[in-house]
């Protein structure tokens, strides 16, 4: 697809939970994508679509049930726990709830400093010095904030602490799991700007998960849309917003509020019905129960992710626009395990 070797390749990752007895939930089913160096890939979907589970599966917290996660050429799903721990400094994560992701009884400065402790090779004084530097980088005043505890800081400040902690180990990949969805709009802007800045300053690649398309559009180079454990569309940011191919993507875009007096109200062409239970997903295309274009074929055959334009992948039998092109582009791009 590209001559660039991706930093992260996710291949057929599946996460299955057992929920008592023999009932299983396929939270993530055969998701595959690549994340290139220096790129921000946005991942959107409603709550319960499995995007956080996917993020944790990539982090190996816990390991996925099936599939491979290849970071910089190395499959981290088969690593022993010791070598995995050693490699962890290269991929870090920022969690949704900024306050809950910090140890409540630790001083925040110590939380930042401690992430270097496991890497080893640095003296305590050196670690503290680095932690204070990093606090300055993320816009906190070490004099004022180093010795505070999480509950003494605002949500936005706690999220800055989390970012500092993640950056301490000098990662290549930063996975942000809804980092701004529990913050006020005004604080959210700060955090997004900060993430964009540290991404370019530190040459990071980023997987940015959110349910808010406007946020995702603001920060991403490419966007992947997830529904009920599967990817339904993956395309460059500009393409997916100007010409969404999956009916679900279009519904999501329509739901975004547009501020301003003369803008149409969000929610026209809304999704009907509820998200089906992942314990009992619909046959064929998982979106068919809410899709205005669903036909018999959607019930029978599960659509595979295929390319409809350069870099634009969609998993739909009847995408919203058919791009004129040679027929061979309509082949399934990746084999996916049946579940």
């Amino acid at each position: 697809m590209s001559e660039r070797e991706p930093l992260l390749r996710v291949e057929g990752v599946t996460v299955v939970y057992s929920v008592g007895g023999r009932r299983n939930v396929h939270a993530v089913s055969g998701v595959s994508f690549a994340l290139f160096r220096g790129e921000t890939l946005g991942l959107v979907g409603e709550s319960g679509c499995g995007k956080s589970t996917l993020a944790r599966a990539i982090m190996q917290l816990p390991r996925p049930t099936a599939g491979r996660v290849i970071l910089d050429g190395e499959d981290i799903t088969v690593l022993g726990s010791r070598s995995l721990r050693a490699l962890r400094s290269r991929f870090q994560m920022i969690f949704q709830d900024p306050i809950a992701s910090l140890n409540p009884i630790r001083r925040v400065g110590e939380s930042i400093e401690a992430s270097l402790r496991t890497k080893g090779g640095k003296s305590a004084a050196e670690r503290v010095r680095r932690a204070r530097e990093m606090m300055t980088t993320v816009g906190l005043d070490p004099e004022q904030h180093y010795r505070r505890r999480p509950f003494q800081l605002s949500g936005g400040q706690c999220q800055r602490v989390s970012i500092a902690r993640a950056l301490m180990t000098e990662p290549q990949l930063l996975i942000c799991d809804e980092p701004v969805s529990s913050l006020d709009v005004s604080v959210q802007a700060h955090i997004i700007n900060l993430l964009r800045k540290v991404k370019s300053d530190y040459g990071l690649s980023m997987l940015f998960i959110a349910h808010d398309l406007a946020v995702v559009k603001n920060i991403s180079d490419r966007v992947a849309v997830m529904y009920l454990g599967r990817l339904c569309e993956l395309a460059p940011c500009a393409d997916i917003f100007s010409s969404p191919a999956h009916p679900y993507t279009r519904a999501l875009i329509n739901a975004v509020p547009r501020p301003g007096p003369c803008q149409p109200l969000a929610g026209t062409g809304m999704l009907s019905g509820e998200l089906p239970s992942p314990m009992d997903p619909p046959s064929g295309c998982r979106f068919r129960t809410r899709c205005p274009r669903a036909e018999t074929r959607c019930v029978m055959v599960q659509p595979e992710l295929r390319q409809i334009a350069p870099g634009h992948l969609v998993a739909c039998h009847f995408p919203l626009r058919e791009v004129a092109g040679p027929d061979e582009d309509h082949r399934p791009l990746m084999d996916r395990p049946d579940n």
């Binding site: 917290l61 050693a86 994560m93 809950a100 992701s101 140890n103 009884i105 401690a114 402790r117």
Partner: peptide, 24 residues
Amino acid sequence: EFVLAARATGADDVAIVLREILPN
């Protein structure tokens, strides 16, 4: 999540129990 976060930075079980869980 803070325990997950500690795991993500590469802390082992002993460190997680002693430094994250036990004090709380």
